[in-house]
Design a protein around this nucleic acid. Structure first.
Length: 282
DNA sequence: CTGCGGTCCTGAAGGC
DNA sequence: TGCCTTCAGGACCGCA
């Protein structure tokens, strides 16, 4: 699922392809996924790209007006780019849900640019959204890649709560960008059990967790995100990321821990699948 | 404050 | 084979 490394990978790709392009038309087949007035996108030029947490934003300019088009891909969103129409349309095929043929049956929005290129927002589950507004629709927590995400922040600003640390890592109002994959793997990297009460973590453990989050998120980004079998995430050119080949615990239940050889366990915390090594995570 | 369950949605997987 | 049920999951909302 698209978390910080996946969304940042998409942003970096699109930054190379969309800057300076002007939107000429927008097709929206699932209106509830678009918040705002689609017609206001006409003649808007992409001036910049931005991201906070899992939210991707295009900075748009239309005459002297700046506006922001934000996207959340939730569980199954894809953003795909085609440099021209012929690459995008396969009219005689019935695309599968995870097909990269465009438009797919999961295509919910198409943004057309004046040079003929197109941007597709696909989302099998329709949980994702786009929002056109006068400000980015960004989460309030500190983004892992921002300068504000510091050791000091983790040491002093983690809430004094007995809620499980994994639940806190997934809270986008505290740390923005960490989702289920990278929360599980970061806790493994830090050697901390996901059910540990947050306020039970020692200073040394918090420092370790800080470094682990930075390291695991950086690794996810290095491999351009995770495109496991049951995930729909791909880059905008439909190529897969490869972080799934480097999972530490995520979906590794029943497999050996790559650090100590014990069997990775699966449980549920806050209703979400949780994976951990029962021996080297304390 | 906290956690829990329901909601959105769809396809895969499991049961018989 | 095929129908039916259950499940997964990010974020949010109402409720106890």
């Amino acid at each position: 699922m698209p978390e910080l490394p996946e969304v940042e990978t998409i942003r970096l790709f699109l930054h190379q392809h969309l800057i300076g392009k002007e939107i000429i038309k927008t097709d929206i087949s699932v209106p509830k996924m678009f918040h705002g007035v689609p017609s206001e996108l006409k003649n808007a030029v992409v001036k910049n790209t931005d991201r906070k947490g899992k939210v991707l934003t295009f900075v748009l300019q239309k005459q002297s007006r700046t506006s922001y088009l934000s996207f959340h891909l939730k569980l199954s969103g894809q953003i795909l780019f085609a440099s021209d129409h012929t690459q995008a349309v396969f009219p005689n095929k019935i695309p599968l849900a995870n097909s990269h043929e465009l438009p797919a049956k999961t295509t919910r929005m198409i943004f057309h640019f004046t040079d003929g290129s197109l941007l597709f927002f696909n989302d099998l589950r329709k949980f994702g959204w786009a929002k056109l507004s006068d400000k980015p629709e960004h989460p309030t927590g500190v983004d892992v890649l921002s300068a504000d995400f510091t050791e000091e922040y983790i040491l002093n600003k983690l809430p004094d709560t007995k809620r499980p640390i994994k639940t806190v890592l997934l809270d986008q109002t505290i740390i923005a960008g960490v989702g289920n994959i990278y929360a599980n793997d970061s806790l493994w990297e830090a050697g901390i059990h996901p059910e540990r009460p947050t306020n039970s973590l020692s200073e040394a453990e918090r420092k370790c967790l800080y470094l682990a989050i930075k390291k695991i998120i950086a690794e996810g980004l290095k491999y351009k995100g995770s495109s496991a079998k049951d995930e729909l995430y791909v880059l905008p050119d439909s190529s897969p990321g490869t972080y799934q080949n480097h999972f530490k615990t995520y979906h590794q239940h029943g497999q050996k821990c790559i650090r100590c050889g014990s069997i990775i366990q699966r449980t549920k915390i806050g209703g979400r699948g949780t994976f951990f090594c029962p021996v080297c995570q304390l």
